[in-house]
Design a protein around this nucleic acid. Structure first.
Lengths: 184, 184
DNA sequence: TCTGAAGACTTCAACAGTAAAGTTCGAAGC
DNA sequence: GCTTCGAACTTTACTGTTGAAGTCTTCAGA
């Protein structure tokens, strides 16, 4: 009776969760579940951490994603909304709205392509670039702290295993297209 | 010139992305970035895959999350909206709406606690339980496929490393509360 | 018993995302 | 040189989430 935290209980620990799965669904491989659950929890926490950091810069996580894509695109630092949407995994409509807001905030510019007036080109402003840089600085501090318990060799092995998993999903889901387990 | 895929380019590969980071932001440790980027890409892909599977059952990913929380809670399979919200990382308001929809669809029940009439209790229905089970079956197939390239020993090492990272973030963010890099 | 404070949930208004229809321009065929 | 098709983006209507304000109940103190 001392072990039920009452009706105000919070998220169970990872091990508690695995134990619960074994109780309710015997077919589950606990080793697999541990990897999968840890992955998704980690991601949630990282998302929260990034959100706090970008908030200090007065931008949202979503806006940072756009800035990252533009900088990573390289030299002219310009991309069309459709391309941006693909890179961020959004619908074109969402991209339109996002760009609207970011133009209003002075983070990016939007102009029509002179050679093809149906096309639009989004570019990064000085302010956008400097917010991006600040966010990167904060992010790298966070990421270094996150991995501080892993040796260099462990980091390498971890990265290698994760990319192996990633390759597996990407093959099966060519561009958010296919499906991993063919269920239809 | 043959290497720019034109204005219709899609998401760059992980390695291309890392190379771009090194070009634009030298302070970045490529090993760290590889881990972090792979984590977030993996999560996006997994989310897409789960979404497809639950869609086949006529429920959303969000609804599956609620069903999972209820089943994992154990025996009476009942939780309050506030507790559910904490476990899923949502605001109470979002939880209210989500439960509305799920009650309408017959996946869960909502009743007032007899002993404390300000409290509400959400329980899972037969149908909810069976959708949960179907979703779990599909998910385990997917997860097993995802990890198929890793040996048993590798899976263990991966799970162990990920939980070490998770512990690090959770310590720093006690309940989505604290912050990892103290930036204020 | 009454009153005030705190807790648990809901309501409301605003915002972000999606799907589908709409608009506009460019290019290919007649 | 029209016309039609298709591509790229935007608009519209709807769904789901958030933050803040509101309601209702319990509990502690006067």
């Amino acid at each position: 009776m001392a072990d039920t935290p009452g009706p105000g209980a919070s998220e169970p620990s990872l091990d508690e969760q695995i134990a619960a799965y074994q109780r309710e669904f015997q077919d589950l491989d606990p080793q697999v579940e541990k990897v999968v659950s840890a992955l998704s929890r980690l991601n949630r926490r990282m998302h929260v951490a990034y959100g706090r950091q970008t908030a200090e810069l007065g931008i949202s996580n979503a806006e940072w994603e756009v800035l990252k894509a533009l900088v990573l695109a390289g030299d002219p630092y310009r991309l069309g909304p459709g391309d941006l949407a693909k890179r961020l995994g959004l619908t074109p409509a969402a991209m339109t709205h996002r760009i609207d807001r970011m133009v209003a905030e002075g983070l990016v510019t939007r102009e029509r392509d002179e050679n093809n007036r149906v096309r639009v080109i989004v570019g990064i402003t000085e302010e956008g670039r400097s917010k991006w840089l600040e966010a990167m600085r904060m992010a790298t501090v966070f990421e270094e702290e996150l991995l501080q318990d892993l040796s260099g060799e462990e980091r390498g092995r971890l990265g290698e295993m994760l990319t192996r998993l990633l390759r597996r999903v990407e093959d099966a889901q060519p561009d958010a297209g296919g499906r991993l387990s063919d269920l239809d």
